[in-house]
Design a protein around this nucleic acid. Sequence first.
DNA 1: AAGTGGTCTAGACCACTCT
DNA 2: GAGTGGTCTAGACCACTTT
Lengths: 230, 230
Amino acid sequence: MAIKHFVCEAIKTGALCPGDRLPSEAELVARFGVSRMTVNRALRELQSAGILTRRAGSGSFVAEPRPIGHMIEIRNIADEVRARGHAYRARVVCNEPVRATAETAALLNVPAGTRLFRSMIVHHEDEWPIQLEDRIVLASAAPDYGATDFTRTTPNEYLTRIAPLERVEHRVRAAMPDASTRALLGLDEQEPALIMIRRTWSRGRLVSHAQLTHPARRFELSASFSVPGA
Amino acid sequence: MAIKHFVCEAIKTGALCPGDRLPSEAELVARFGVSRMTVNRALRELQSAGILTRRAGSGSFVAEPRPIGHMIEIRNIADEVRARGHAYRARVVCNEPVRATAETAALLNVPAGTRLFRSMIVHHEDEWPIQLEDRIVLASAAPDYGATDFTRTTPNEYLTRIAPLERVEHRVRAAMPDASTRALLGLDEQEPALIMIRRTWSRGRLVSHAQLTHPARRFELSASFSVPGA
DNA sequence: AAGTGGTCTAGACCACTCT
DNA sequence: GAGTGGTCTAGACCACTTT
């Protein structure tokens, strides 16, 4: 439908930004020469897709960037910690431009030698390490990644802000961490870790690969959802 | 809206079952005394919610039981194994009626003494144990649970068939398994396990609590989703 | 008071499926 | 060919928000 396409394109190209008001139904009726029911349906469907918010008496607005967390509640770890009433602190072990090696190239599905950033960050809850984040990022998709202060903003926050998130994939497994990981997370020798591989796509490209290692004792991944319509 | 409510109630009460045909739009127009656009919108919204499937020229039908797996792909373990081209086999360690103890009562949020079923099943992929399923089920919600042959159908399959699934919750963590679990899964002493707690609700009640233990080496939980509209 | 979206009506034309 | 859903029109009344 022409109207949905028009609105989606305007959002993609940036002509319409989150919070912006759309033309009213009446204006779109005039502009596209269709009936109001048609305009109304188009906008209603975009609303139910989470792309617009609408308020009777007020107008239709481009929705804020989508909340990812509905399905797998791995949101912003800093917010999560603070929501529990604890202090959040991050220690940036490294954050530097690198060239893709054979292994990292395979992880991001790019040629060896591609410019990447590699960061390792230990996230703390009240001084307790709760996550080691080992991430590689496509430099062309996030040119300022290396200059970002990740004690103030998390990589995930940064990436979702600069690049529209299209797809996320999580894989979770348990493993015994290696010695250096144990040291960074302050783990006992016998303690297993919950490892999540999180890959994100933007503008059709796989842009980031993160390995998130958690002490098993101090972490649980949860997902909960209702069956729609039931 | 009256029509959506009518259809949903008919499905909930069992008057309409998956695969059944609904009255045509014209019939609903006559029955409810509303215009066809109203009927059409109601049915279209139920379709987009995944409750109906519709085919032009043919009719509207109650959709098959919903695919749970979109968000967390823990589907039917038997199908998963077979999809990998391997043989699936289940060993039922126990499956018996029990009364809720203090602990199991707390897990299902029922009074102690409530009638339950308790089953323990080891799922195998080509003779390799890949999951220990330790489950308790509300007997009043699944009266035939104890008489079901779980070498032929999985508990999850059985439960989703007899009770409309309303809500699922998953919690995942890593842990070192105890000795009896190690024995059932054939694990080494040092091997961590990925433990998923899966709780399911039906008709407003928490009906099942399952602890699924997986050898970490042989298992990965994955979830992948696209951002709608992006 | 003017403008907005929310909802509904009565009618129309079409492509498709079923027989 | 009869019946189905897919889509659209032109008009209406309402509750709400904004000014």
